[in-house]
């Protein structure tokens, strides 16, 4: 009975990811035929450039969710890091490189702050990161007094926003590197093993002699570091740093992760699935804004977000619906 159960869960997971790839293929096929200039190389690198920040956050969010936690503060932290970077380069006249380095360090510190509250004080991740969601964004607003925008960065830094290597924009390389890093971390090291075990059963993991608190803290710190890197990319791409940078990105990141088949309850999921989720969302939002009718109405952004939200709801409800259907089918026989 239980063996049957776990096998059907496995097949469901398989189906989920297969389904997602199918959606992806359909999307691409549809947009190739209906969207203006969708398949051009220029547009492809556009997709990569525009999805890099959310993609990075999603990759970092994946291990957090794998441990059964959540981090709502990454979008706000992106904004704070962007502003801090602006302060260092403009108000303090630091060179770009040390400023970038310190920004990433501060991002890690912010992540460690979340991690400390969650592990040392055993507070629920949801409410802790909801607090820091408000705190980080608030600090960014306070520093910029709500309105100040940092512009005119070092041209070398801004050049990074357009930089290409082997035809792939820099953002693509960073995203690829992050995917590789998180893929290896989750799938090929003992850390990923521990995240998964903690996601399934923190108590049981403790009984196996694994340092649960230390392992739980790690994904939050990585999420902080990653948010800072995403802030730098964001600043380079838009050529400006503002307090509202990255608003709502935490939602998009969570959506990509859940869409990619990671269980919101923790324990199961793959980085490859998350990447597929990121791609599905990125292609959807790019492609839909190139469909002539949508283009004419100028509703590309809204429509893409709406479909993403609906997709997330569907992805969430699907396992429960399947379970309901299965039990309804089983009831009469037993």
């Amino acid at each position: 009975m239980s063996s049957q159960n776990s096998r059907s869960i496995k097949s469901l997971l398989l189906r989920h990811e297969v389904l997602l790839v199918l959606v992806l293929v359909l999307e691409i096929f549809y947009f190739l035929n209906n969207a203006r200039n969708f398949g051009t190389p220029d547009n492809l690198s556009n997709i990569v450039r525009h999805s890099a920040e959310i993609g990075l956050l999603a990759l970092a969010m994946m291990p957090v969710i794998l441990t059964g936690g959540i981090d709502l503060s990454v979008g706000s932290l992106l904004g704070l890091c962007a502003v801090l970077f602006g302060v260092m380069t403009h108000d303090w006249h630091w060179a770009t490189l040390p400023a970038a380095f310190v920004t990433i360090l501060l991002g890690g510190l912010a992540g460690a702050f979340n991690a400390t509250l969650i592990t040392a004080l055993r507070l629920p991740p949801l409410i802790v990161t909801l607090g820091t969601y408000s705190l980080f964004r608030g600090l960014a607003e306070a520093i910029t007094q709500g309105t100040k925008t940092y512009r005119s960065f070092d041209p070398g830094f801004l050049g990074l926003g357009e930089f290409r290597f082997l035809g792939l924009p820099l953002q693509g390389w960073v995203l690829g590197f992050a995917a590789l890093f998180f893929g290896i971390l989750v799938h090929l090291t003992v850390f990923g093993r521990s995240f998964r075990a903690i996601g399934y059963s923190p108590e049981g993991t403790r009984y196996a002699g694994i340092p649960v608190l230390r392992r739980t803290a790690m994904p939050y710190i990585l999420a902080g570091l990653t948010a800072a890197v995403a802030a730098l990319l964001f600043t380079a791409r838009l050529q400006q740093a503002r307090a509202d940078a990255g608003t709502g990105y935490e939602l998009a990141a969570i959506t990509a992760v859940v869409l990619g088949g990671t269980s919101i309850f923790g324990g199961s999921g793959t980085v490859y699935g998350t990447l597929t989720g990121i791609a599905a969302i990125a292609i959807l939002s790019n492609g839909i804004s190139r469909v002539p009718a949508v283009l004419k109405a100028g509703i590309g952004g809204e429509l893409a977000s709406l479909l993403t939200g609906a997709l997330l709801l569907l992805a969430l409800a699907a396992p429960a619906l399947v379970r309901l259907l299965q039990s309804a089918r089983k009831q009469p026989t037993t």
Binding site: L117, S134, E141, A142
Partner: peptide, 22 residues
């Protein structure tokens, strides 16, 4: 400066949960 409102709100939330947790 009033720009601190959101930050203070976040801090107040955190203080409240920390107090409850302790």
């Amino acid at each position: 400066e009033a720009y601190w409102e959101k930050a203070i709100q976040g801090l107040v939330i955190l203080l409240a949960v920390i107090a409850d947790g302790l």
